[in-house]
Simulated assay, not measured.
Amino acid sequence: MQYTYAYRSPLGGITIASDGENLTGLWFEGQRYFGNTLCAEHCERMLPVFVQTIEWLDCYFGGGKPDFMPSLNPAGTPFRQTVWKALLQIPYGETVSYGELAAEIARQRGAGGSARAVGGAVGRNPVSVIIPCHRVVGSGGSLTGYAGGLTRKTALLTLEGIDTSRFFVPKHGTAL
């Protein structure tokens, strides 16, 4: 059984999901791939992992840097799992490019990888904000590729003290 909880953030409603013990999803209302790992049958119930997640989110949206992590168990392919673990290594208040992340993934796996494949895994991150996919930017300083929308991505980066004026939004397509 899966469980959900509705959280109100300064950036809009968030649905939090759990398998009963671990955090399995966290999506902004209306974001791309909303609930993509959520079963059709789920129920709302307060769980200890939701209490911890709410504390994490309250700290984060309050301008703090959470020093704890809810137990995570996002569902995904081994490649996506590798990418999401790499996202957790991006320090608060810092960004990396899709190309830099792809190079790190290739180093870890001992095999080549493309920024586009990494971008696909980043975009399907089912635990937004806590697994910090918003910290990945396009090459050359483009601000691109956030399932929750570029307005939210900009707000999250600004909340972490990142000067977003150094980034630009591509006019045509999505640059990785």
Rank of each mutant, 00 (worst) to 15 (best):
G149W: 05
A75D: 08
L23S: 02
K171R: 15
A147M: 00
A147D: 02
T24R: 11
F28P: 04
S71F: 01
G110V: 06
L11W: 12
T24Q: 09
H42A: 00
F168T: 05
V127A: 11
T15W: 05
G173M: 02
G64I: 10
G12V: 07
K171A: 15
G30W: 10
G123Y: 06
T154C: 05
T151R: 14
R166Y: 00
G13I: 04
Q81L: 09
E100T: 13
G161H: 14
W56H: 12
G35I: 03
A17Y: 00
G123K: 01
L159F: 01
T82F: 06
W84H: 09
T4C: 08
S139M: 15
P126E: 06
H42K: 01
V169Q: 08
H134K: 10
L87G: 01
F50M: 06
L57I: 11
S165L: 11
C39A: 12
E29I: 05
N36V: 07
A117D: 13
G148Y: 00
F168D: 03
F28M: 07
P91F: 00
T77Y: 04
A40E: 03
Q31A: 11
G141I: 09
G119Q: 06
V136N: 01
F61V: 07
Y98L: 09
I54N: 15
K171H: 12
N73Y: 00
G119Y: 13
E94F: 02
D67E: 14
Q2K: 03
S165F: 05
G62R: 05
W56S: 08
V49D: 08
E21C: 09
I105T: 06
A111H: 15
G140E: 02
D67A: 14
A115R: 04
G12R: 10
N125T: 11
F50E: 02
S71H: 00
W84L: 12
P74G: 10
T77D: 14
G112I: 09
K85C: 02
G138L: 04
T174S: 12
T4F: 04
T82N: 03
C39E: 00
L72N: 07
G30E: 10
V83F: 10
L38E: 01
S114E: 08
S18E: 04
P126V: 01
G13L: 13
G112F: 09
Q2H: 03
T164A: 03
S71W: 00
V49F: 15
S165W: 02
D58L: 12
